[in-house]
Write a protein that binds this DNA or RNA. Structure first.
Length: 211
DNA sequence: ACACAGATTGAG
DNA sequence: TCAATCTGTGTC
């Protein structure tokens, strides 16, 4: 197993990368252990695209998007959850691919512990929730959404925004899944650019986020 | 964004 | 009839 190289990120445009990342494995080697999952759902965000964080100008929040291809952009959403993006395009151009869902492959117990920890430290009304990764439902709910996967993978804005996917603790490995059909459709949870078909996912995969 | 409740679908 | 799926609502 080998990590995707820098040229892979540099030599493809954003929408091509959004498609090519499907089937690749996202890996985080953290002090607590290793977690990994196959990328099954992505969305592309382009310059000139009103849904893109970098649509207007560079700010403190979106600064990582303007970095070199192959770096990680972590942003907070709804003052609570976080989402991760793979930065694409040349340095100075603010484009990225949002990772929306993973099929967990490694470190299931650690993922489960992190999700359940998030429940106990999260909103009051969720404190009695638990996920049991040994059941089909628990397994499926581990990483089937952008906020969930960030928790399960132990990724944070403080530690991983600007992190290099080529040399940092979070990496993306070459495809482990290649025999699948891809669905192209519109993106989720956005107000502007809602008609643009920049969302991609693996057809029939149970770990894709629900609409 | 996530999670929940209630409605809807559909397999057997 | 029961489980899986879909829709709508609430929360920060």
């Amino acid at each position: 197993m080998a990590a995707l190289s820098l040229p892979f990120y540099e030599n493809h445009d954003t929408l091509t990368l959004a498609q090519r990342l499907l089937g690749c494995e996202l890996v985080h080697d953290s002090p607590a252990g290793r977690t990994a999952g196959i990328i099954v759902e992505t969305e592309g965000y382009l310059t000139g695209d009103p849904a893109c964080h970098a649509y207007r100008r560079a700010t403190k929040r979106n600064a990582a998007m303007f970095g070199p291809a192959g770096t990680l952009y972590v942003y907070q959403i709804y003052n609570h959850y976080h989402c991760i993006n793979v930065v694409t395009g040349p340095e100075g151009v603010g484009e990225a691919v949002l990772i929306r869902a993973l099929q967990p492959t490694d470190g299931l117990a650690l993922m489960e512990a992190r999700r359940n920890e998030a429940f106990t430290t999260g909103f009051e009304r969720y404190r009695n929730n638990t996920i049991d990764a040994s059941t089909p439902e628990g397994f499926r709910n581990l990483c089937n959404g952008p906020g969930k996967l960030v928790i399960a993978m132990g990724i944070s804005r403080a530690d991983h925004n600007f992190s290099s996917l080529v040399s940092g603790p979070v990496s993306i490995q070459e495809p482990v899944l290649t025999d699948f059909e891809m669905i192209t459709t519109t993106r989720i949870g956005i107000k502007f650019g809602a008609d643009l078909p920049y969302r991609y996912y693996i057809k029939g995969n149970r770990f894709v986020s629900k609409k």
